[in-house]
Structures are given as structure tokens and as C-alpha cells.
Computed example of a mutant assay.
Amino acid sequence: MAEEQQGQGTNPPQEQPNEPLPRTYNQLLGTNNPTKTSWPELVGVTAEEAERKIKEDISGVEIQVVPPDSFVTADFRFKRVRLYVDESNKVIRTPIIG
């Protein structure tokens, strides 16, 4: 009778993943170094100074300078930082990754 019930109505054992799901931005990128995701200290500096500082913190990042009243896309990119600037080219919003 045990032979008849074997395989009927039972699910095979589920394989457990070897690694847990990523819980942080750094784990998602596969790095162990703590990486900044925002730069509130750059509000008020010029776009050139902000770009230099961000590139020191993250290599290979794409910097986009966004002039006043400009439109941007709503997509998210892990290697992009937008610098929203005013008429005098000073950063007016906290730069963040995305």
C-alpha cells in the first residue's frame, strides 16, 4: 500500500537556494564596499564640483546635469546620478543614484 501512495498527492522537496536574496544596493551590484547612494552635502556647489566628488565615490557613474524646467525620464539606472541645477549652475536638489 505504501508503494501505491508514493508520488501521489505529494510535492517533491524544494531545493533551497545557496545564497539569500540581496538586501542592499551593494549586494545587488555584487560589491562589499559601502557605496553612497546620495550626496546631500553637494547641494549649493557647482555642477562641476559635484560631478568630481561623485566620480571619486563611484567609478563608472554617468552624471546628467539637468537645467531648470527640463524634463527627465522616470526610469531607474544603477549607474546614473542626476544633478538638478539652477540658472547659476549650482546643485539645488540632493543628487541620488537612479
Rank of each mutant, 00 (worst) to 15 (best):
Gly9Phe: 09
Asn32Thr: 11
Phe76Ser: 10
Glu3Asn: 12
Pro67Tyr: 00
Asn32Trp: 05
Lys55Gly: 01
Ala50Gln: 07
Thr94Asn: 12
Pro67Asp: 12
Asp75Phe: 00
Val61Tyr: 04
Glu41Phe: 00
Pro20Asp: 14
Lys55Ser: 03
Ser88Phe: 15
Asn26Ala: 03
Thr10Arg: 02
Met1Gly: 12
Gly7Arg: 06
Arg80Leu: 13
Gln5Asn: 12
Val65Arg: 05
Glu3Thr: 15
Glu3Asp: 13
Thr73Gly: 15
Ser59Leu: 05
Gln14Ser: 10
Gln64Thr: 08
Val61Pro: 04
Pro13His: 15
Val91Arg: 03
Leu42Gly: 03
Val81Pro: 01
Ile63Met: 13
Val91Asn: 07
Gly7Thr: 09
Glu19Thr: 14
Gln27Gly: 13
Lys55Leu: 00
Glu4Leu: 13
Leu83Trp: 05
Glu3Gly: 08
Val65Asp: 12
Val85Cys: 11
Gln27Val: 02
Ser59Lys: 10
Ile97Tyr: 04
Ala74Ser: 14
Gln64Ile: 04
Leu42Lys: 00
Gln5Cys: 12
Arg93Ala: 03
Arg52Glu: 14
Glu48Gly: 10
Asp86His: 03
Arg23Pro: 01
Glu51Thr: 09
Val61Gly: 11
Glu62Gly: 02
Pro22Cys: 02
Thr10Ala: 14
Leu83Thr: 09
Asn26Met: 08
Ser59Arg: 10
Pro40Tyr: 13
Pro12Leu: 11
Pro95His: 10
Gly7Gln: 13
Glu4Cys: 07
Glu19Leu: 01
Lys36Glu: 04
Arg80Pro: 01
Asn33Ala: 14
Ser38Ile: 00
Met1His: 08
Asp86Leu: 15
Glu3Arg: 07
Val45Gln: 03
Leu29Trp: 11
Asp69His: 12
Lys36Asn: 00
Phe71Trp: 09
Glu62Val: 13
Ile92Ser: 00
Gly44Ser: 07
Gln6Asp: 10
Thr10Asn: 08
Lys55Ile: 02
Tyr25Asp: 02
Asn11Glu: 03
Arg93Leu: 12
Pro34Asp: 06
Pro22Ile: 02
Gly60Thr: 03
Val65Gly: 15
Met1Pro: 07
Gly9Asn: 14
Lys55Tyr: 05
Lys53Tyr: 08
Thr35Arg: 00
Pro20Thr: 02
Ile92Gln: 01
